Amino acid sequence: MHSFDSNDFSYDNYRRLLTFLDNEYEIFSFKDAYRLGAKILDVPRFVILRHDVEFSVKGALALARIEHELGIKSTFFFLQTSDYNCFDRHEAERIREIISLGHDVGLHYDASLFEDMKVDPVVAAKLQIKLFECFFNVKVHAMSSHMPMRSGKAFSIDGVIDTYDPLYLRDIKYISDSNQVWRENISTKGLLEHQQIHLLLHENTWSDDGLSIFEISLAEAFEKFQKHHTNALKYNSMVKVGLKNRAVKDNEFKKRYFSSN
């Protein structure tokens, strides 16, 4: 039996956790859960493995690569209203790599934001799903609410699993690592008390050196600052070059868009 330390949030310990789970349970993604439906309860021992990506697509990719090394597939739920941008070139390339590794992707939506903006949550979520499916050429099988305790209004979309449906929250044991605070006994012995588990692991919980959640947040903020600073310098340089060639570029633009055939 592979033992792991519930207080260690390093990638090495993440590997130990997954190896233990893989030896003791059948591991499903929510794509598998979609295929099985309620019949999933007929499987005697399983873990549905899910990731709500809160801050870092880079961190999500790190988990995806580790799981791929171990032959494990899971579902990564991405926010379209976070401080990362799924459709930024670099972030999109990372998401596409996650998909290429065989993982499933889903929508992580912010219901409280929908309420604050006074938009229809069903319409908004459907549009976000459609955009994600179109941009990444995938089928979204499930959606996950961001911090569901902040919003009292639940909603559903036909043909899309809600990860907080009673089937996955009541009939199956739900365990999460939110903010590096396990709400259950996550020891090997504690896990084995449950036959069917819905396991939520966040990308901002784990790191190479097992940093605290505060240290991970600071490192992520600094990396994003560096990225924006570099982009600002590139943009300023591009503007200077563009101004020098403005007349030429204006003429080229007019020829492309206004010249008659």
Results as ranks from 00 to 15, higher is better:
Arg35Ala: 02
Ile99Tyr: 06
Ser151Trp: 00
Arg96Phe: 08
Phe225Leu: 05
Gln128Val: 04
Asp165Val: 10
Ile66Pro: 07
Lys244Pro: 01
Asn13His: 10
Ala64Thr: 03
Ile27Pro: 08
Val123Leu: 12
Val47Asn: 09
Thr188His: 02
Ala219Tyr: 05
Glu133Asn: 14
Arg150Asn: 10
Arg15Cys: 01
Trp182Gly: 03
Arg170Val: 14
Ala62Val: 10
Glu24Asn: 13
Arg96Leu: 11
Glu93Gln: 15
Lys153Thr: 10
Asp209Val: 03
Lys126His: 06
Gln195Ile: 01
Leu107Arg: 04
Tyr257Leu: 07
Val47Ile: 07
Ser144Ala: 15
Leu61Ile: 01
Ala221Phe: 09
Asn245Pro: 02
Glu133Ile: 07
Ile172Pro: 06
His68Ala: 09
Val140Met: 14
Glu223Gln: 05
Ser176Gln: 12
Lys39His: 09
Leu113Ser: 11
Tyr25Val: 05
Tyr257Asn: 04
Tyr14Glu: 15
Glu93Trp: 15
Val138Asp: 02
Ile213Gly: 00
Ala60Met: 03
Asn7Leu: 10
Leu243Pro: 10
His108Lys: 04
Arg89Ser: 12
Gln195Trp: 08
Thr19Pro: 00
Arg15Met: 02
Ile186Gln: 09
Lys189Thr: 13
Lys139Tyr: 08
Ser178Leu: 12
Tyr174His: 13
Leu192Ser: 06
Leu21Pro: 12
Gln226Asp: 09
Arg170Lys: 15
Glu54Asn: 09
Val181Ala: 09
Tyr164Asn: 05
Val53Glu: 05
Met117Lys: 15
Gly242Ile: 02
Phe4Pro: 04
Lys240Ser: 08
Gln80Ile: 08
Asp42Arg: 09
Arg94Asn: 04
Gln195Ala: 09
Arg94Trp: 10
Pro44Ser: 11
Leu61His: 05
Ala247Gly: 06
Glu115Asp: 12
Leu201Val: 02
Glu115Pro: 01
Trp182Asn: 11
Leu211Arg: 03
Phe30Pro: 01
Lys249Pro: 02
Leu167Tyr: 03
Thr188Leu: 03
Leu131Met: 14
Lys58Phe: 05
Asp5Tyr: 15
Glu24Phe: 12
Phe214Val: 03
Phe9Cys: 14
Glu54Asp: 11
Phe46Cys: 10
Arg16Cys: 10
Gly106Asn: 01
Ile129Met: 07
Asn137Arg: 12
Phe78Lys: 00
Lys118Ser: 09
Ser82Leu: 03
Glu69Val: 00
Lys254Pro: 07
Ile66Tyr: 10
Phe4Tyr: 06
Ala60Phe: 07
Phe76Ile: 00
Phe28Leu: 13
